[in-house]
Amino acid sequence: MRFDTSPAPHVIAGYTVPRVMFQVLFALLPAGMAHVVLFGPGLLLQLAVACVTALLAEAAALRWRGRDAAPALKDGSVLVTAFLLAFSIPPLLPWWLGALGTALAVLLGKHVFGGLGQNPFNPAMVGYAILLVSFPAEMTRWPVPMDVEGSRSWSELARMSVASFYGADLTTHWDGYTGATALDSIRSGLDLRYTLPELLARGDIAGTLGARGFAWINLAALAGGLYLMLRRIVRWHIPVAVLGGLLVPSFIAHGLDSGNALGPAMQAFSGATMLTAFFIATDPVSAATSDRGRLWYGAGIGLLAWIIRTWGGYPDGFAFAVLLMNLAVPFIDRYTVPRIYGRQP
């Protein structure tokens, strides 16, 4: 009897890229729910526009490059980019800005470099950073979260989100519904020579755990991230290093100057900390290669974010920290090649 032949190994685990990507989307669910409860349904609108734009941009890019679009659209990777961008931008952003950011993320962040697996930068962060420097006002205007005393009802929030999505001018109708994020308020408060304890005592900036609103989202993102680690979609190196890189210096600085420097709890549970540590920095394509390299990469992101939050021009520094460390990846990779079995280090 005759048989076909094929190369070993003949059995594989059967992991697939779509499986990885959809697990990531699934793990974002708790953070998404917290987001909607605290900041209104704006996130859902942003998600919708981001996903549609991302799929269209991906299909268009593949067509231009003369590739078959169907498998790439099904692998879910472009949806992860859309989700991460939608989670990063304010839920009140007019739809065309969300669309613009997503299109830039997919085209400029991914396809100019050759598509899946080739991009040196995290696509979602490319889109985010361009939006942030080009539209600083829109990109820093958030709804007042529901857990701030005296905030309006959720249905009011929903109406505002929809209006804002279509580009209504919020100052006429909804003045006082929007504001800066907690990190933003603290930054401007400190610049006005308030002390940190005074700012935190105000009650509209921070709660018991961290920033108003964002504390819960961070907690939910942490839960989703732990799930990904449990499912071995994400390995521990990058999240642990990001958190270490951010929290260790903030612990020291807070110990030295508690009047001005944010403590580790506040740092961990405000802004995009957990989202970055578990979902954004862990994008494997743009991260360092080896486990040891990923520790340096993650620690660099955490540290840069701390520096930008402390002294930089932007209240949250994660997007730029990620992009800067993306830039450093070839350098890190060069010096963190693992020792090969049987060879001297």
Partner: peptide, 30 residues
């Protein structure tokens, strides 16, 4: 027995590093 391989569809490397994590020779397959 071998359906996992027969049905496999190759896509570009996403640099996830899982291969390096298991390589007994300490190599970077990607």
């Amino acid at each position: 027995d071998i359906g996992s391989r027969l049905e496999a569809v190759e896509v570009p490397c996403i640099r996830c590093g899982d291969c390096a994590g298991v390589c007994p020779a300490g190599l970077l397959p990607q």
